[in-house]
Write a protein that binds this DNA or RNA. Sequence first.
DNA 1: CGGGTTTGACCGGCGC
DNA 2: GCGCCGGTCAAACCCG
Length: 231
Amino acid sequence: MAVSLIGFDSACVCLIRPAAAATATATAKKGQKRARQPRFAFMTKSEIDHLEDGYRWRKYGQKAVKNSPFPRSYYRCTNSKCTVKKRVERSSDDPSVVITTYEGQHCHHTASFQRGVGGAAVAAHIHGAAAVALAEQMSAFVSPPPQPHMLYGLPRLHPPSSETAVSCSMPTTTSLQELNNSEGLQRPGYNNSPQAAVTIAQRPPSPSVPPAVSFDKGLLDDIVPPGVRLG
DNA sequence: CGGGTTTGACCGGCGC
DNA sequence: GCGCCGGTCAAACCCG
């Protein structure tokens, strides 16, 4: 297992709203309409599909998707009271990139994470997983669903649009950049961990969009529980 | 034996 | 109306 790094000077989580999500949300479950849930998609450079993020997931389906040689996997949170789902698929453009889409809000913290390394705090210290865990927390604690204007803090994949892209600002003191600079990247062993995948941010299409990370700490405090924070 | 994974079938939305 | 496609179900299977 080797996790490769993309040459970003500031590796960070990439939150996107895939175009497919718009139609996917309209899918109904056997006769009953499904409530629209907040969704966040993350692109992660990793050889493994299912990244540890502090929660436990049960796979309930896998489908081949059109225009992609890679199947898409469907996971649900194992907590029976929790309705959060996630989809995991590989990018057809870059097979080394895993696209994870989270849907819904966790009604619990990472208490269910009890395997192996043992705890959300540890997961948070594994920088790649931290990114995803952070994203998890965002999806869990941002309610009502985040508005585009408050989410655009990271490099944009697309022009601001409520349906085409969602990003989020990152915390000043616990940004993923800091995680990468001060935590996981320099830690031997972590890079060999299956969890130590690098969640990436795509470069903005326009140089006018600064790659700078600016997170509202208050927002962070709202969305990231102490257990997943550093420092 | 319990919990998780695999996989084919089924359902509903959407575009034509 | 029809076919395609994404999402989910559920039985069979696997594994610790």
